[in-house]
Every structure is written in C-alpha cells, then in structure tokens.
Design a protein around this nucleic acid. Structure first.
Lengths: 195, 195
DNA sequence: ATAGTAACGGAGGAACCCTCACTTTGTCAA
DNA sequence: TTGACAAAGTGAGGGTTCCTCCGTTACTAT
C-alpha cells in the first residue's frame, strides 16, 4: 500500500528500498519524539543521504503526510470492520476512541497535518476522504437506530475528536481527554437520552 | 497591567518604551501572520535591536506568552462582567463564544501556548488560573439555574473550545467551528433540555 | 556489455535562532 | 550640573536546520 508513483513505471528496486526505509524510520521517530523531527537524522538513520530523502519527500509536509497516510488508512479499515458490529452506537463510539488514540500517538502532528487535509488533490486528502466515508457509514447506522442526532455531520465529529487530542497533547491530566470525549458524545446523542 | 518586573525597582524609561513597543508589534504580527513570526522582524519593526528583544523576552515562548497574557486577562474581565448578566446560561455561552474568537485570533498559538499553561509558576499559568476561576463562576451560576449538567468542569469546557479553535485554524469551512461549539453546548446542557 | 536514465549524495546557501562582549544611556546622588 | 554606575541596547556571529543543485553512481533493458 501507499505506492509513491501509482500511474508510472514501478520505482527502481533501490528506490523502493530507500523509500520504505525512510518511511519506517520516520514513523518510529515521529511516534517517539513528535513531529519536530530533524530530517537529516531521519536520512542518516535510514541509511541514505539527505538528498535522497528530499527526492522521495520534497517537503517536510510530504514526509509527515506519508507517515499519517497509513494511520488514516488503518482507521478507514477499522471503520469498515465496525460497520457490521451489533450495536451501531457502540460501534461509532469505539471508532471515535480509536480516532483519539491515533491522533494522540502522532504527537503534535495535528497542527502540521491539518493544513494538508484541506488541500484537494493530495494523497492525504484522498485517504482522509475515504476515512470520512467509512466513518459516515457508522454515523448513519447510529442515526438510523435513533441513537445519534440526525443533524450531526461526521466531519464535525471527527474534527472535534482531533481537537480533543490536540489540546491534550501536552496536558498532565491523563483522563481529561476521555471526559471531553464524553461531553461530545452526550452532545451528539438523541435528545431524550436515557442512560 | 503586565509589569515585567513586579517586585524590583521600576524599569528604566527606555526599557519600558521598548518593552511596550515590542509587545505591541508582536501582538499585531501574531494576529496577522500567526505564531510563526520571525523574531528579527519583530525587533526591527519595533525599532529595536534583536538583542533588546531577547533581553525582554529571553525565549520565543516568553514573547508569545506575553502576547497571550493580555488576552487571558481580557477574558477574565469579560467573565466578571458577564457574571451579573440576567440569564446564566446565555452568559456562559456568550463567554464561550468570546473564548473561541480569541483563540481563533491567536492563530496557531494554541499549540505553542498549551505547553506553558500547565507549567506552574509562569505568569501565563497564573493568569490562566484567574481566568478559569472567573469562568467557573459563570458555569456555577448556570448549574445552579439547572441549565448545565452539574458534572461538568469548566476546565474541560474551556479546553474543548480551544480544541475547536485549533482544528479550525486552517479550515476552509467558516461555519464549522460554530457547529462544533453547538455540539459541545448540547453536551453540557442538562439532559431533558427543551428548546 | 553498454547506453540511458533514474536515483543517490552531500556540499553549501539561506533562514532563523540565540548569545555575548562591547557600547550607549538613563538615573541618582553629590 | 555633573559624574559614575548600572541597566539597557546592539548586531555580528556561531549554531542548527532546511532545502537545492548538480556531479556521481548504479539499476535496467536491450
């Protein structure tokens, strides 16, 4: 998955190796130290020159997006699995919690990524759209079951979850994120909700 | 307000002037171009050398915090005003919208500031605490009037609002932030809410 | 084997950060 | 008023990181 040049000839063997190595290295570095990684370190750590890194990922953004891409696809896949879960409401909530875990893991990537998500044509934008579609199915099911308000958009919900992850990135209170998510969940439930 | 050296002798006249000039310049620059300001530009624009900037604001954080400080104090003042408004619920909501406007204005400062807020002893931490206290009054009034759930913490609400501002910083959808805020409001209202 | 070209690599210019040693200037006491 | 002292100002410069550019290397296909 995540072919860098989908339409053209396949990449040369060494290029494929290097691309994979860079991506793997970057993924580890981001999850360990956040988005403020030093690109030269990534290149060295991946065993390639800095020029090679820039060949594959022309900007810092491109590299971060590539890292993010896998997570986005993973979330889409999870949503598709959950679409056949027995209780629509529970499925949606589970997925939202997954979203938050992922967002929290990509420490301080949130701000960096948010920019690209809204730029049409990028790979991340396409993957993001696909993930939204998959999430939308979960939402619609929960709405059909009258467990979620019908005037709620999946887009807003997902972004709220990201917002929660972002403000809690450096917070000391480990349970705050969950309390906030509970508030949001309360906000999207059908009005006369009985617990 | 916002004396740089509260305990000691007053600052020399030229120092006061330069401090004020830097702060004003930074405030404008941040609201126009976000937190990624170039400190050298700020100094030049304020008519002082870069060394002077660093004398007053030893780190980039310090400058951003100083900018933020005024807004935080402003929000505290607004909360205190609103504490005597006729309808507690409306007062709280108005204040939350103010919060969001402020957060949105300090574009991409969110991430930069979040770090410092949780560090005890900093000026921003103290101002932040005062603002929270003022906001808490609004929340308690609305809870006493049975318009807001009693298990809601002001801290979580404020942070949610910041999260909304953050994820909407670069978004193209201008109304998204308001929709999200509405969801949060729905989440904190007392359960059997009648519109 | 060889040509052709995709990919590699790293020196180096640019942008920005922050420090530091020297200079300037406000302040206050005599 | 003046002189001395300390507070404040200044900007060149060293450090870091970003990204480009183009000469070099080596995969691939014929």
């Amino acid at each position: 998955m995540s072919e860098p040049t989908p339409a053209n000839r396949p990449m040369r063997a060494d290029a494929q190796r290097n691309y994979a190595s860079l991506l793997k290295t970057a993924r580890v570095a981001v999850s360990e130290r956040g988005a403020d990684i030093v690109l030269e370190d990534i290149a060295r750590s991946a065993g390639v020159g800095i020029g090679t890194l820039y060949r594959h990922f022309p900007t810092r953004q491109d590299l971060l997006e590539a890292v993010f891409l896998d997570e986005t696809n993973e979330l889409r896949a999870r949503a598709e699995e959950l679409a056949s879960a027995p209780v629509p409401f529970d499925a949606l909530i589970s997925w939202l919690r997954l979203q938050m875990d992922f967002a929290a893991r990509g420490r301080s990537m949130g701000a960096a990524i948010m920019a690209a998500k809204h730029v049409e044509g990028t790979r991340i934008s396409a993957a993001n759209k696909a993930m939204h579609e998959a999430g939308k199915v979960l939402l619609l099911r929960a709405q059909a079951a009258e467990q979620i308000r019908t005037d709620v958009h999946i887009r807003d919900v997902i972004r709220l979850v990201y917002g929660i992850a972002m403000v809690n990135e450096r917070a000391s209170d480990p349970d705050g994120a969950n309390r906030m998510l509970d508030l949001v969940i309360a906000g999207i439930r059908t009005k006369p909700s009985r617990d």
